[in-house]
Design a protein around this nucleic acid. Structure first.
Lengths: 193, 193
DNA sequence: GAGGAAGCGGACCGGCCGGTCAACTTATAA
DNA sequence: TTATAAGTTGACCGGCCGGTCCGCTTCCTC
């Protein structure tokens, strides 16, 4: 790939990440191109559709998160490891969440692969934490996948933006995952993925 | 108001509620009109803008929820009352959440009033539950306002729609609000409203 | 440095959407 | 029954957005 093309691709991806984080799928391609300082046509040269661009952004994010989380599998304290993973996840995706990922009707093979990798990692972290007694026995990996984005989302509802408010709700939700004071769950867990 | 106008207004509101629930703010006015079986022009006769229509729908929902919740203030078990309120809230808004409400840039006075009424009610329910020791002392009404929509949202991420899955996550999150096994929160609560 | 391929950009297209309007229909009251 | 105000409607408008295309520029190779 030519040098300028590679540079523009990188600019484009960071601009897109920013724009999607701010406006979700409603971010316009023209806006993304402007942020990156490139022409709109160039966007479509690198990614045939807007969905493909979104998929590429999500792919990067998921790969990074999975990579960062893998190290936690070795941790001596499985409960702390799971909490740390959820902290990483919430921190990285302050606002742009799973919703956006589902909107990208991703038949994209690489993306499905990355999703599976992340889900597998989460399942291992959850199993380890469960076996160690750090979280209640009726919680599955699928539960954690679904709950993962909740802290960021909940904090996003706050009218005045409070930095790190998501930490408060991650703490509360994680307390709900702990064995102490757990109440029987009324509905079985969903299937993973 | 003429009889047919009143009839159309009612049809319009239910159609809009349905459409907004399905597609959020992306629901088109044309689609809403078609669902109601009326012309698009009629929509704008009843509500000058799409935002006003959304505001009217949210107003109805909030008023209904507040009315339903007020009876719970008399309950002998404040903890159960709060849980019941959250169940009502999550059940009524399966999918359409606070996000949509914030998108309606509501200078609308009636809507602000309804919001305040609901927030006040929630604050009372929370205070009662806290005083009774049913929930931990570091939780405020503002926390519950923000967390209120989380169960529905989390359940919405599930790939295959599972009816009542939100009950599972409401149960988990409410367990996080209980005093048993509570962990100190890292961030102070946000301001209400 | 010269040739050509790879990359770039922005005018342009079709389609959709919120909102308007003027001609037409209908409920109601006298 | 009839006059009229109130209500309805769908064609229409301007604007935006995703995506295309072709003339122009830039990088790489020899």
């Amino acid at each position: 790939m030519r040098a300028d093309a590679a540079r523009n691709r990188a600019l484009l991806l960071t601009a897109a990440e920013e724009a999607f984080a701010e406006h979700g799928m409603d971010a316009s391609v023209a806006d993304i191109a402007a942020r990156a300082g490139i022409g709109k046509g160039t966007v479509f040269r690198h990614f045939p559709t807007k969905d493909d661009l979104l998929a590429a952004v999500m792919l990067d994010r998921m790969d990074a998160l999975t990579a960062a989380g893998r190290g936690l599998l070795e941790s001596a304290d499985p409960g702390a490891a799971l909490l740390e993973f959820l902290t990483l996840a919430a921190d990285r995706q302050q606002r742009n969440d799973m919703t956006v990922l589902q909107q990208a009707n991703a038949v994209n093979a690489r993306l499905t692969e990355a999703r599976t990798a992340m889900f597998t990692l989460i399942d291992r972290l959850v199993t380890r934490a469960r076996d160690a007694g750090a979280i209640r026995p009726d919680i599955t990996g699928a539960d954690v996948v679904l709950l993962m984005c909740a802290p960021g989302h909940v904090a996003g509802f706050a009218p005045n933006p409070v930095p790190d408010l998501w930490r408060r709700y991650l703490s509360i939700i994680f307390d709900g995952l702990r064995p102490a004071g757990a109440t029987p769950l009324p509905i079985p867990p969903p299937r993973m993925g």
